[in-house]
Amino acid sequence: MGMKSDIKLIDAKGKRLDGRAIDEMRPLKIEAGVLEQADGSAYLEWGNNKVIAAVYGPRECLPRHKASPYGSTLMYRYNMAPFSVDDRKRPGRDRRSTEISKISEEALNKVVLTERFPNSMININVEVLQADAGTRCAALTAASVALADAGIPMKDMVASCAAGKAGDHIVLDLGKLEDNFGKADVPMAIVPHTGEIVLLQMDGDLSPKEFKTAMTLATKGCMMAYEEQKKALKAKYKGGGKK
């Protein structure tokens, strides 16, 4: 965010570097049930992001002191593969992935009916295989499909998308250059049928009015992501059999 350059992110006709309109999302494709070992899984491609999510559980809670008598403990792990970015990422947890994992876990807690499975845990593991801006939204969108695919009871899905500021415009779903050279990023996640906001972050520089516009646009993006989640889960059982 905020790197200085002469790159023009929006041309005179209002088109972005990759030819998208201001409110256009990068192509999003999701497939449910892709891993044999996991209880539920999903593979997602969003622009050049490639993300895979696996859910295990509910199962015996380890370490045991994390168990809660009030419900299942969600454990979300966002991880970037070393080869997912241009400069090799040192393997393992860092502060960024710790933070993303924490807020994504909290977002999913709103919809998962954890109280059905006291003292157990549900592991949600997301690996970013190729990163191209917007990985936390991609990861959360995939994780939600994997949870449903694991048959875990949920009030609703969680769908996620970001908006941001490129040049002087508020745009949907920042691409990599827009992320590096843009002025602000607003990742969001909502519960589709109520519109409740379960994840909201912002960094950069926005006026109050721009912030509101960005939230409205991100909400639209979340609904587009939701449509793809729905398609993916319905497609798995289409035509009489599991693939």
């Binding site: 924490k102 807020i103 909290e106 807690n109 709103k110 607003v186 519960v191 109520t194 519109g195 409740e196 906001i197 379960v198 994840l199 909201l200 972050q201 912002m202 960094d203 950069g204 520089d205 926005l206 006026s207 109050p208 721009e210 912030f211 509101k212 939230m215 909400t219």
Partner: peptide, 27 residues
């Protein structure tokens, strides 16, 4: 996160959610 003329950071946390009007008035 507020700077003199606008917003420079934001972060939602917790297992619950906010509605859009709640965010607007808090802001």
């Amino acid at each position: 996160g507020m700077v003199e003329k606008g917003l420079c950071a934001a972060q939602k946390g917790g297992k619950g959610s906010f509605t859009q009007p709640e965010i607007d008035s808090a802001f």
